[in-house]
């Protein structure tokens, strides 16, 4: 059974443990600016919304990549950036209608969530279960995908 990140914004307190954990896992240091998951703070509404790649089926990033640097991880279903192949052209960053693949100016490559290979650090660090890693069917990610599907060029 493939698993997905399930995000429940109502439970999020905006502590950014997820961002810290993500950066520590992927960059080796505490650096939320390099996190693949981002918590948006709707200050005036008193709402926090963690946001990251939904590993969407359409995989706009992967399809737009001109050098085959984004591949499907057969185990987790995540779309992973192969850093040694990525040339840093950034086409994926404009192609992804979610804005969840981003250019890292210090590495000259793009980065995105890869579910930490099946043990996502953000979910592990979240103190309120706002981010959990659960069976893909139970996530409600399909709703986010439905939203994104409006973007699709009617090809699916």
């Amino acid at each position: 059974m493939q698993k997905s990140l399930h995000i429940d914004p109502a439970k999020c307190t905006g502590c950014l443990q997820c961002e810290s954990a993500c950066s520590l896992e992927n960059e080796g240091i505490f650096n939320p600016s390099k996190s693949r998951i981002k918590v948006f703070n709707f200050h005036d509404e008193g709402r926090f919304v963690p946001y990251t790649c939904t590993q969407c089926d359409e995989a706009w990033c992967m399809q737009a990549c001109p050098v085959d640097a984004i591949v499907i991880n057969a185990e987790t279903g995540s779309k992973d950036v192969l850093e040694d192949i990525c040339v840093g052209c950034k086409v994926c960053t404009i192609a992804c209608p979610f804005g969840t693949i981003n250019y890292n100016t210090s590495s000259g490559k793009v980065v995105k969530c890869d579910l930490c290979g099946g043990d996502p650090a953000c979910a592990d660090a979240c103190p309120t279960q706002a981010i959990t890693y659960v069976d893909a069917n139970a996530t409600g990610l399909d709703k986010m995908r439905a939203w994104a599907a409006k973007t699709d060029n009617a090809t699916s």
Binding site: T93, I94, P97, G99, T100
Partner: peptide
């Protein structure tokens, strides 16, 4: 700008 630039496409294409 390098972060979340794709949402520009998302917003335009969904015409939300």
């Amino acid at each position: 700008m390098t972060q979340h630039v794709g949402v520009m496409r998302g917003l335009i294409q969904t015409a939300s």
